[in-house]
Simulated scan of single mutants.
Amino acid sequence: MENSKPWLKPALEFGPLILFFAVFMLYRTDTVLIAGRPYGGFILATLAFIPALMATTAIQWRMTGKLAPMQVATLVLVVVFGGLSVWLNDPRFFTLKPTIIYLMFAAILGTGLMLRRNWLGAVLSEALPMDAEGWRKLTLRMALFFVFLAMLNEVVWRNMSESSWVWFKTFGLPVLLFVFLLGNAGLYRAHALPPKDVADDDRAL
């Protein structure tokens, strides 16, 4: 299914985020009454984002038969913190969610480094075959990058407007991730496994 429809995977991954942005921009200056309670555009966008992410995650699971641990963790935190924002009508819980996610990812990667376990490679080795030293370097860089993103999210949501945070969340974070991945192209090349070694390396993970 994925091969016949190459647009489907990015649509599932970015669809809920684009929906969040669209709903927020549509209602950002309005207040809507739901069950007698007034909700602003941010809460309405969050209310749309949660079921959309649940649906796209379920579709990805049905398509592939599996979900990455980061996908599961992200979904749980979105439901918990997004649900708190909607329930308490307070956007701060949802804006705090990326900080928690990035710190958690950084902690997981850091723990893997300390235990000398290649957890990142176990997830991504099929798409990016590298030797053990390459995965160690990438894991360290990615852990530090996630800490940076967590700190940056705190600066943005605590010091800027809701609109600024939504733009940052929708476009800024994906661009930063893309730049990070592109910036490590030299590492990928330097530590790439020869084709004949890929299968052996996968069995060793």
Rank of each mutant, 00 (worst) to 15 (best):
W135C: 10
F49I: 06
D90M: 08
L17W: 11
W135I: 05
M1P: 04
L96A: 15
F42G: 01
Y102A: 09
M114A: 13
L176M: 07
D200V: 12
G40E: 05
A192E: 11
A122R: 15
G83F: 03
P194L: 03
F42C: 03
F168H: 08
L128D: 07
R28W: 00
A107W: 12
W7Y: 11
L138R: 15
L181D: 00
R117T: 07
F49C: 07
G121E: 03
P6D: 01
V72Y: 05
L144A: 12
V76P: 12
T29K: 15
R117H: 13
W157G: 05
T99Q: 04
W7I: 06
P10I: 01
G134T: 06
M63F: 04
W119F: 07
A35Y: 05
L113F: 03
V86S: 00
T31C: 09
G65W: 00
K66L: 03
M160P: 08
P194N: 02
A190D: 11
G36E: 00
D200G: 10
R28M: 06
L84V: 02
L140N: 12
P69E: 03
S163A: 14
A199I: 05
F145G: 02
Q71K: 13
L47D: 10
Y188S: 10
R203G: 08
G82E: 03
V123S: 12
L128F: 12
G183Y: 01
L152V: 09
P194T: 03
M54P: 07
L53W: 10
Y39F: 14
F81D: 11
K5W: 01
P6V: 00
Y39V: 02
N153I: 05
V32F: 04
A35E: 05
Y102W: 08
H191C: 03
M130Y: 02
P194K: 01
L182W: 05
L124A: 14
P129R: 02
L67C: 12
F81H: 13
L128E: 10
F94H: 14
N3K: 15
F180T: 02
I18D: 04
F93C: 09
F168Q: 00
L47K: 14
A52I: 11
F14N: 15
A150M: 08
I43S: 04
E13N: 13
I43H: 01
W61V: 02
V198R: 02
